[in-house]
């Protein structure tokens, strides 16, 4: 049912209201009459083929010489603004375009109460649109947020990583990522129960988030007990420093962990990787490098940071 949208439609009629020339847009505007559009066809015949309001193609004003003001009508659910001019030898120039401009009040209702009514209706319309935008935003947030911890989810992290990868590459800026794993978290869950495990995840997530202060920094829940941080415009030294801060912040929580071999409290292991000078388009190399460094941290006894430059790009 939907026709190809046109942005502008132009047509010229002679003094007898017969078609002289027209643009492709005019053919789309009066699509029902496409089969009869030809030089010499009358405006009335074109209109008669179409299921459109009469004013859409009413050139009767031309005999009087004064073109009507710009008006709007609706064509297949699209708002069209029509402007007409009288040229030499009685030629009529008709220009129509899709528009979202402020609508004019219907001429038969130009009085104060009609204006009030219209104003109220327009404000309701604006409120409906505002609610729609809020709902869209909420759904977007839901799709990108981890339901348990309230921080970003892996999908959001992946999307943002790609965006920042391209931005930092273009601007020749470093990009760092930190991979984080809660040490012996399965044992924590088994020992304290899953509800306590969930509480522990929430506390750690909020602590990590609280320790990232720059607007572009992001912490996300990557998987079960895995978190990740994205630090744009951050070199290896600063990223490793931030990782150490995070490790200390979690340690400071002093959440008891009776089954950890690393400490008597909950600790985290961290792998930090930095792309100092980005090449190529594959951002996953940074993830793989950080993941490998996380394993190195675990192998080194957990509760510590391992960091390195990412050298396997392109």
């Amino acid at each position: 049912m939907d026709k190809a949208p046109f942005t502008q439609s132009v047509a010229i009629f002679d003094a007898s209201e017969r078609l002289v020339d027209w643009s492709a847009g005019f053919g789309e505007e009066f699509a029902d009459a496409a089969s009869i559009l030809s030089q010499g066809i009358s405006a009335r015949d074109i209109y008669a083929m179409c299921l459109l309001p009469e004013r859409a193609l009413d050139l009767s004003w031309a005999s009087g010489g004064t073109p009507p003001p710009v008006f709007e009508y609706i064509n297949n659910r699209r708002s069209i603004a029509v402007e007409q001019h009288l040229g030499a030898n009685g030629y009529v120039f008709r220009i129509a375009q899709s528009t979202q401009a402020t609508p004019q009040l219907h001429p038969s209702m130009l009085d104060e109460s009609a204006e009030l009514l219209r104003s109220a209706a327009l404000q309701i319309s604006a409120a409906v649109l505002k609610r729609r935008e809020q709902e869209t935003h909420r759904l977007h947030e839901l799709a990108l947020t981890d339901g348990l911890t309230g921080i970003a989810n892996r999908r959001y992290f992946d999307e943002l990583l790609d965006i920042e990868w391209q931005r930092c590459k273009k601007s020749r800026l470093p990009l760092s990522t930190i991979f984080i794993d809660i040490d012996f978290f399965k044992r924590y869950n088994d020992f304290y129960g899953h509800l306590s495990g969930d509480v522990c995840l929430k506390i750690i997530a909020s602590t990590l988030r609280a320790n990232l202060h720059r607007p572009r920094d992001l912490v996300a829940r990557y998987g079960g007990e895995e978190f990740t941080c994205l630090l744009p415009e951050t070199d290896l030294r600063d990223a490793a420093h931030k990782a150490a801060e995070l490790e200390k912040a979690i340690r400071a929580l002093a959440i008891p962990h009776g089954k950890s071999e690393a400490a008597s409290i909950v600790t985290i292991s961290l792998g930090v990787s930095t792309a100092q000078c980005i090449m190529g388009d594959d951002s996953s190399v940074l993830i793989r490098a950080a993941d490998q460094l996380l394993y190195d941290a675990k192998a080194a006894g957990r509760g510590c940071v391992r960091s390195a430059l990412c050298t396997s790009m392109g």
Binding site: E72, S79, A101, P103, H106, A121, L122, S125
Partner: peptide, 8 residues
């Protein structure tokens, strides 16, 4: 009639 653009 109030809003010929159709947005209302």
């Amino acid at each position: 009639k109030l809003d010929p653009s159709g947005s209302v």
